[in-house]
Simulated assay, not measured.
Amino acid sequence: MRVLDREALVRGMLERTPPPVPSDLYPEVVRRGGRIRRRATAARRLLWLALLAAALAFVIWASVARPWVEPPSTTTPPVSDW
């Protein structure tokens, strides 16, 4: 298809009148949009809750395990009386 043919085809499509929209379309769109928005809000809250739970679990693990403390050395024998 040549460029001029494509341009003529696009112009013809743009000059046509759009098809009529059904009158009951708006309430259906509003209903579906509300449902999508509620699902997105619930998913966002669930992700924040999961992030909070992971942060809390990390803080509890770090306070119990104390990974920043160097473990005691086990290679040196205990000192006994001389």
Rank of each mutant, 00 (worst) to 15 (best):
M1P: 01
M1N: 04
R2N: 15
R2T: 15
L4A: 08
L4S: 14
L4R: 14
D5A: 02
D5Y: 00
E7G: 00
A8F: 00
L9F: 08
G12M: 07
G12W: 01
M13V: 02
L14E: 08
L14R: 05
E15F: 00
E15W: 01
E15Q: 02
R16V: 04
R16W: 02
R16E: 02
R16A: 12
T17G: 13
P18W: 08
P19I: 03
P20L: 14
P20V: 14
P20E: 15
V21F: 08
P22N: 09
P22Y: 03
S23A: 15
D24H: 13
P27T: 14
P27E: 11
V29I: 11
V30Y: 01
R31L: 15
R31T: 07
R32D: 04
G33C: 05
G33F: 04
G34L: 12
R35T: 12
R35G: 05
R35L: 13
I36A: 07
I36T: 09
I36W: 08
R37A: 15
R37H: 06
R38W: 01
R38V: 05
R38M: 11
R39A: 09
R39N: 07
R39L: 08
R39D: 10
R39W: 03
R39H: 02
A40Y: 05
A40K: 13
T41Q: 14
A42V: 11
A42C: 07
A42M: 11
R45G: 10
R45P: 00
L47T: 11
W48S: 10
W48P: 00
W48F: 06
W48G: 03
L49P: 00
A50L: 15
L51T: 06
L51W: 07
L51D: 05
L51M: 13
L52Q: 02
A53L: 15
A53K: 02
A54L: 12
A54N: 10
A55P: 01
A55Q: 08
L56M: 11
L56T: 11
A57W: 08
A57E: 04
A57L: 12
F58S: 10
F58A: 14
V59A: 14
V59F: 04
I60L: 14
W61M: 07
A62L: 07
A62F: 08
S63Y: 03
V64T: 13
V64I: 14
V64C: 09
V64A: 04
A65D: 10
A65Q: 08
R66N: 09
P67R: 00
W68I: 06
W68G: 01
V69S: 05
V69K: 15
V69N: 06
V69W: 01
E70W: 03
P72F: 05
S73Y: 06
S73K: 06
T74E: 10
T74F: 04
T75D: 15
T76N: 03
T76K: 09
T76M: 02
P78K: 07
P78I: 04
P78Q: 12
S80P: 00
S80T: 14
S80E: 15
D81M: 08
W82P: 14
